[in-house]
């Protein structure tokens, strides 16, 4: 039994469709990510679910109830924004308590719940501070606490990590996931960052031009992209058309092929038909740009020791693991 179910959802904005024919279901406690490039409609879809943007057609069922006719106040949905959207005139405590104040929760009860949720995001020492006295990461944790305190049925996260620097982002992403698991909270997360999507989600909906292109868990999405867009958006696939692929594999190929750079191997044994153009060090991985039989490829090799590095201009042998080749539409 699905907890959230979106059926035939459609939205046009002054004549141009933002998204159409959106269908998906989410089970209770699931962490789902809408992943896609900017302008693909993912944020609008999230705002439609929140009720901040009206939809043209379709149903959004939350716990069996169609919430499309309800205004955002009545939906029981919490949301965290990229810009934090904290109220600058209120302290952390007052910000978090705002939702309870609107629900007319009694003061001592509200006080207890605010303290609990601030504990959860590890900000109880900052209760009396104002938002402008906090760092970006702390602000976003306050925003998270504020949306959790009303015990929403569904939590929406609209690129909450995009405004933060890399270290904080990694830490906060683990913290969000941990809290979400602890509370068993059904969550929809929007991002354009494939790494965030792959590391955090139970399931990913990959969106492009207002459609869900592919859905599945991280492994599935990463290992078998359904089309050129999916292969181009996730990972660093080498995308080859049929003709180039035939030349590379030296056998007739009829469709486009996507090859993950880490499934290719370079070695000094075998026929040295591959020329190393250049390389870049990504840390744990060395990314080579090579050419073989007139085909340019990207090859990722684990960076074991500097001694194994192939200098630019060297000729080496390329091994292709044909079982990981992926035909894409």
């Amino acid at each position: 039994m699905s907890f959230v179910s979106v059926e035939q959802l459609q939205k046009t904005y002054s004549g141009t469709p933002v998204f159409s024919d959106i269908n998906f279901t989410i089970s209770k406690g699931e962490f789902v990510t809408l992943l896609g490039p900017s302008g693909c409609g993912k944020s609008t879809l999230l705002r439609c679910i929140a009720g901040l943007t009206p939809v043209d057609q379709g149903k959004i069922l939350l716990d069996g109830q169609d919430i499309v006719p309800l205004n955002p106040q009545k939906r029981g949905i919490g949301m965290v924004f990229q810009s934090y959207a904290l109220f600058p005139n209120m302290t952390v405590e007052q910000n978090v308590a705002f939702g309870l104040r609107m629900q007319k929760v009694k003061a001592d009860d509200s006080h207890k719940r605010v303290a609990e949720v601030l504990q959860l995001v590890e900000l109880n020492d900052f209760a009396k501070r104002y938002p402008h006295q906090l760092s970006g990461g702390q602000c976003q944790r306050v925003a998270l606490a504020r949306s959790l305190v009303t015990r929403p049925r569904l939590l929406l996260l609209d690129e909450p990590l995009s405004a933060l620097d890399a270290r904080i982002r990694k830490h906060l992403r683990e913290q969000i996931r941990q809290i979400q698991r602890e509370l068993g909270l059904t969550t929809i997360f929007v991002t354009h960052d494939q790494e965030e999507a792959l590391t955090m989600s139970d399931r990913i909906f990959l969106m492009n031009k207002g459609r869900i292109v592919q859905s599945g868990n991280a492994e599935n999405l990463y290992a078998s992209p359904v089309d050129v867009f999916a292969a181009g958006f996730i990972g660093n696939y080498n995308l080859l058309d049929a003709e180039t692929a035939s030349r590379l594999l030296q056998r007739p190929v009829t469709s486009r092929i996507a090859i993950r750079p880490e499934t290719l191997g370079l070695s000094l044994q075998g026929e040295p038909d591959t020329l190393i153009h250049n390389h870049s060090l990504l840390g744990n991985v060395i990314r080579y740009r090579v050419e073989v039989r007139g085909v340019e490829l990207v090859v990722d090799v684990l960076n074991r020791s500097p001694a194994d590095l192939y200098p630019d201009g060297q000729r080496v042998a390329l091994s292709i693991d044909t079982s990981t080749l992926c035909e894409v539409a």
């Binding site: 009720g51 955002p72 904290l86 705002f98 504020r146 949306s147 009303t150």
Partner: peptide, 9 residues
């Protein structure tokens, strides 16, 4: 938006 989602008119 944030205020409305938290239940404010």
């Amino acid at each position: 938006d944030a205020a409305q989602l938290l239940g404010a008119s």
